[in-house]
Design a protein around this nucleic acid. Structure first.
Length: 423
RNA sequence: GCGGGCGUCGCCAAGCGGUUAAGGCAGCGGCUUGUGGCGCCGCUAUUCGGGGGUUCGAAUCCCCUCGCUCGCCCCA
């Protein structure tokens, strides 16, 4: 026997049993964005490696060790997108969207990160994200976050925590980094190994270390908020006030820093305690410097991304169900004449708007009816050669108890007979 | 990339060194060659993720490998 081929590690198939749930999720999201006046943008899965290196930051883990990169046949360094923002900004610049005014955009689709798979973490995973390009007002932060919060609620998810922080301006951060490093160096020996390393590579990331000893130590450390200029702090307060006014509960987390270089000012995460180690369902923040960094005009932006696999895990845990809808009609047929006619009848009923499953097995009526029952269809339409010759069909209500026998209906009347009852 | 756990039919699952690898669900066939849901009967793993090894003998022990899973890391 030939060795069984498998999907690549961390790459997951979505079988028919799962796709109903995904479609429901996508439908809800699409409608939510439509009502929020946010428009969809679709960009390629594959981009020049340089886009991510410049956009996300060379020093980040996502760029440094998690990208699916390769050189194509034209010797171009390419990368499967590890996140959506960089591509959206690139597309907006390339097509001059920003000169048409501020953009309210959303995107969805697969992202790729070469990591060790874990619950809620795959190598190909799916995100839905929002990007507001060209919005500086603190109210845009509030609205962006509110859209995420409400979408999660529309998807039936409660019991979530919105953690929020301000990373201030690049100057604020530079100032803070110096203070923090100075302080941490005095406590160098008390830090865990990972954090000691990050002291030189990315000291701010030490703040959200999961090491309990490090966390205990950090309680005494200088706080980012104290290094913010007044204007940054005011801005943050306005965002918090705006969220409070919308009755969206926030938890200030002074140690929330996030891993992508482009974030500044508002940074937030929406987390759930039901997800284990991968607790973040939605994360985002302001990235006022990114557009410029990618060669565009200085443009204030805020955005977020939402992990669909994690969302689905939460929906499942909270018992939300979504089953694939059964067909309206199961078309039982037997005999050559009836078989040919059934093919035509199925098409005709479908054109009339009914969902029709046509039995192609050639099995007996009993077998087919059994399958009709299991399909969950409301109606069985039976077509044998006797009926075919007479231009009739038998109609059975599969959801009744079988008390009344099948009705005999002229083929021409079938659609009309079934449609009003279908609802 | 690092550490722990796991891997028996499409799914759930017994077996834990000794002749033919339980069972349930699903599937298929029959009872019922033109009429469903119930019931009954039968069929469906020469094989235990894959490859080596130990042994008279392995699904059961060892090694490697692949995959899953939990934690670290990272993030959605």
């Amino acid at each position: 026997m030939v060795e069984q081929l498998q999907s690549l590690r961390g790459m997951v198939d979505l079988l028919p049993a799962a796709t109903a749930r995904w479609q429901a999720l996508e439908t809800t999201a699409r409608d939510h964005f439509r009502r929020a006046g946010v428009h969809e943008i679709r960009t390629p899965l594959l981009e020049a490696t340089e886009l991510f290196a410049r956009g996300i930051g060379e020093a980040t883990d996502v760029v440094g060790k998690e990208m699916y990169s390769f050189v194509d046949r034209g010797d171009r360094p390419c990368t499967l997108r590890p996140e959506g923002t960089a591509g959206v900004v690139r597309a907006a610049l390339q097509h001059g969207l920003l000169s048409q005014g501020p953009q309210r955009l959303w995107y969805g689709g697969p992202m790729f990160r070469y990591e060790r798979p874990q619950g809620g973490r795959q190598r190909q995973f799916h995100q839905i994200g929002l990007e507001f390009l060209g919005f500086a007002d603190p109210r845009s932060d509030v609205e962006a976050i509110a859209i995420a919060w409400d979408l999660l609620a529309a998807l039936g998810l409660g019991d979530l925590t919105l953690e929020i922080n301000s990373l201030g301006t690049p100057d604020d951060r530079r100032r803070y980094r110096e203070r923090l490093v100075a302080w941490l160096e005095q406590h160098h020996d008390a830090l865990d190994g990972d954090s000691q390393q990050r002291l030189t590579t990315n000291p701010l990331r030490i703040l959200d270390s999961k090491n309990p000893d490090t966390q205990r130590l950090l309680i005494e450390a200088p706080q980012l908020i104290d290094s913010l200029e007044d204007s940054s702090r005011d801005r943050f307060e306005q965002v918090l006030a705006g969220l409070a006014e919308l009755a969206i509960p926030t938890v200030r987390n002074p140690r929330l820093v996030r891993g992508l270089d482009y974030y500044g000012h508002t940074a937030f995460e929406i987390t759930s305690g039901a997800l284990g180690a991968q607790a973040t369902v939605c994360g985002g923040g302001r990235y006022d410097g990114l557009v410029e960094q990618l060669g565009g005009p200085a443009t204030a932006c805020i955005g977020w991304a939402l992990g669909l696999e994690r969302l689905l895990i939460l929906q499942e845990r909270s018992g939300t169900t979504a089953a694939a809808p059964p067909p309206d009609v199961y078309l039982v047929n037997q005999g050559d004449g009836a078989g040919a006619l059934a093919l035509r009848l199925a098409r005709q009923l479908r054109q009339a708007g009914l969902a029709v499953e046509l039995d192609l097995s050639g099995a007996g009526f009993g077998k087919q009816l059994k399958r009709a029952d299991r399909s969950g269809a409301r109606w069985a339409v039976l077509l044998g050669d006797r009926e075919a010759a007479a231009g009739l069909a038998q109609l059975k209500d599969l959801q009744g108890d079988g008390g009344e026998g099948p009705a005999t209906v002229p083929l021409a009347d079938l659609a009309a007979r079934l449609l009003p009852a279908g609802g």
